[in-house]
Design a protein around this nucleic acid. Sequence first.
DNA 1: CGCGAGCTTGATGCCGATCAATGCATGTGG
DNA 2: CCACATGCATTGATCGGCATCAAGCTCGCG
Lengths: 250, 250
Amino acid sequence: MSETHCSTSHVPIRIEPFKVACSGCNLRELCLPLGMSEAQLERLDSMVATRRSVARGEALFRVGDAFAALYAIRAGFFKTNVSSEDGRDQVTGFQMAGELLGLDGIGTDRHTCDAIALEDSQVCLIPFHQLEDLSREFSDLQRHFHRIMSREIVRDHGVMLLLGSMRAEERLAAFLLNLTQRLRTRGYSASSLVLRMTREEIGSYLGLKLETVSRAFSKFQEDGLLDVKQRQIHVLKPEGLQALVNGSGC
Amino acid sequence: MSETHCSTSHVPIRIEPFKVACSGCNLRELCLPLGMSEAQLERLDSMVATRRSVARGEALFRVGDAFAALYAIRAGFFKTNVSSEDGRDQVTGFQMAGELLGLDGIGTDRHTCDAIALEDSQVCLIPFHQLEDLSREFSDLQRHFHRIMSREIVRDHGVMLLLGSMRAEERLAAFLLNLTQRLRTRGYSASSLVLRMTREEIGSYLGLKLETVSRAFSKFQEDGLLDVKQRQIHVLKPEGLQALVNGSGC
DNA sequence: CGCGAGCTTGATGCCGATCAATGCATGTGG
DNA sequence: CCACATGCATTGATCGGCATCAAGCTCGCG
């Protein structure tokens, strides 16, 4: 009950000696293989041959690292981070199982952000040149990959809207709704979740200080929208959060 | 002197009866054709057959419009806009000659933002399915297109950093440096520019109110960094702007 | 010439940052 | 097992930057 998702945390991770292929992966309806035929899946399997484990707190890649592959998250939870010369840094996203990491590296052949595991995680390596080769063969794959990139752009626009025009509580509400939405897609409860990130990381993502995030959580609890115990969150009134995002108060 | 770039504004625009091909376009080193061979350029020419004029204030596309093509800006200046259900809206970018519009539409086959011309403009239509077809043939084109999308993601991350962690004057300084940088790439003066957008649009992009933008301009003028006359800007001390962005004051 | 859109500037107030203290959970070594 | 350290979260008090409200101002244009 206390572990409603991502039960991998605190379980020791090893590289599995036998390969588990895309075609047998329970994330294939969320991940790169979505909508692909048997024949295509077979080819994908031969491309995505390598797994990599990343312990909590470790980097999957860092700014400046050479880019060679995309990473599909098989299990776990990540954050991505950019920083300016003078040390300001900004969490640009949180990624969970079935999502793709590393798109930032394509443009310059170097990664432009850090990807840090927030719990012990596993990723599947997708060598990018091979992905390009394969997507020249299979227009379905090509199309799917383009959609993924485009959706990332659209997602970023949403974050820009949030950062540019919402107040603190609206931001947190939007953030929580987004998280629960994505967890629901993965078959987890929409009302009960364990945050994998600190208040400070949430704050960085939302353009707020950690104290402000904490106060907003407390406010939501007072108002009966949430039950908050540290990182354990129960959503009591999702419609109340939604109302906040929609700016009912204005 | 007063028109240091984008001299198309206020000049009546007509659809040119004879086609000007990518291969003869003076933007080919900035735009999609970058780095392509003669043979590839020929094929590109046959794909990019249509031009479209967009008058100042008009939309190239709007949220919900069916997506079928990307648009390369041949001349002019655009803004892109997202908005939430409750009417909040956010400028997500300003685009100038040689840049691509419409990537947002790939993910859902519908555009997710408005693209509005800020001056009389011309765009080249790039039918997206044909682009996909061609980029399955030419890996150079494929690679280039992927880079463009990736760079858009990286750019958005930069804006998130700006919105999440910079103060008003730092934001405006970063914005101005970005604009002059892009104008320089296009052969215009780095020190003299005419803003094509209102204070309100700048504010929306930077997550500020128009009054704050105006005050920041005035402050820069007081400090001798800029000469500001309405939309006519002269940059006197680019290094002063750079120092602001680097957070010298902290 | 006068209108209106956009820009500037001033006065005031509020939201969220900052500073500071306390609380709570986990882990470690005596 | 307890004492203590450490990292994270909560809560309070105060401060400051930007939003808001409100006049004027500028410039292009009918």
